[in-house]
Design a protein around this nucleic acid. Structure first.
Lengths: 175, 175
DNA sequence: CTTGTAAGTGGACACGTGTCCGGTTAGTCT
DNA sequence: AGACTAACCGGACACGTGTCCACTTACAAG
């Protein structure tokens, strides 16, 4: 059972981080610690990396992203749903630059286990639907897609994101 | 006309950096400066970023990579040549982890001008050949390819590189 | 040979990151 | 209530990065 102050500290860290991101879109770890009134030790114990902190801050957004997939699958064929979902990811990534960092597999975090968090599972679902439909290559894993999506984290790729997604998605399709 | 000592300093910096990479595969900038017997100021003036230094160290390798493209185009059809060339890139990237950093477009360096250095030009040549042949999509730019190749810089992508290249190349092809 | 000066030098500095550890405190047990 | 202990706290620290600027020196002109 975690201590009460530890819980509130963690919550305050996330809250402060969200505020910082809204105002400056920068996220210096030591600034977060100072603003939250905790030491760096506490900050790093709760969130070992900046990505972990971002993941918590954007968890609601990630959840929404995850939730949109089944909805898309219900309304469209698998290929279209997949394509639309990728567009959703790109849109989120452009608005909130941190989202993509949040869904990236941490070092040694994703390679060992097969699942790369909720996002990985959703991609797997979309891939499975596409495979069943015959529109998506059978040799594509969620890990592959995640890796290919890595370009979204590059700053240079703000605008042509949809175009690049087009190329990537074209590559995932059967021919 | 640059000063004589400046020239030798620059050469020694590159030499030292190469040695460091061969022994530790790490490249701390201040370590390079100290080992080369120059101040950090000198180092950063000659090479504004670590990438610039890596680019110089691996220039010979990059040149070889660039030279292999026309050769491949002479021996195979454009699509095959392009595919083989991508494999070459992946092989280089796996052996010398720094090569990929060397060919990446620096911030604001590649977006403005159309050319992203020699690598960008080679890719453009391969793309043009593929377009003429009708096997490569017309809406693909060298910049796109460079961005998509960005996954090579991720550590996690050491082994499945060829598979991912397969997916990417599949995306570049016409259908 | 002396002097001028523009280029070059190199180290101090400010900043961000992540680790480590002595002190503190919440929750529990008697 | 009082004491114990394990978890927690938070700041000092060591390290790497990149910038800045006072000093030095190569080269040229008189």
């Amino acid at each position: 059972m975690p201590r009460a102050d530890a819980v509130s500290n963690r919550a305050r860290i996330v809250e402060v981080a969200r505020d910082l991101l809204n105002s400056t879109s920068e996220l210096p770890m030591n600034a977060v610690a100072k603003a939250a009134g905790v030491g760096q030790g506490t900050l790093y114990r709760n969130f070992a990396t900046r990505e972990a902190l971002l993941a918590e801050v954007y968890r609601a957004d990630v959840d929404q992203l995850v939730a949109s997939a089944p909805q898309l699958l219900a309304e469209h064929d698998a290929a279209t749903a997949f394509r639309r979902w990728l567009d959703n990811v790109a849109d989120y990534a452009r608005v909130k630059r941190g989202v993509l960092a949040a869904l990236e597999p941490g070092p040694g975090h994703a390679l060992a286990a097969g699942h790369s968090g909720p996002i990985g599972e959703v991609i797997e679902v979309l891939l499975a639907a596409g495979r069943a439909e015959g529109s998506i290559r059978a040799d594509v894993s969620a890990q592959d897609v995640l890796l290919l999506l890595g370009f979204l984290s590059r700053e240079e790729a703000a605008e042509p994101a949809h175009h690049l997604l087009d190329l990537i998605f074209n590559g995932l399709r059967t021919r």
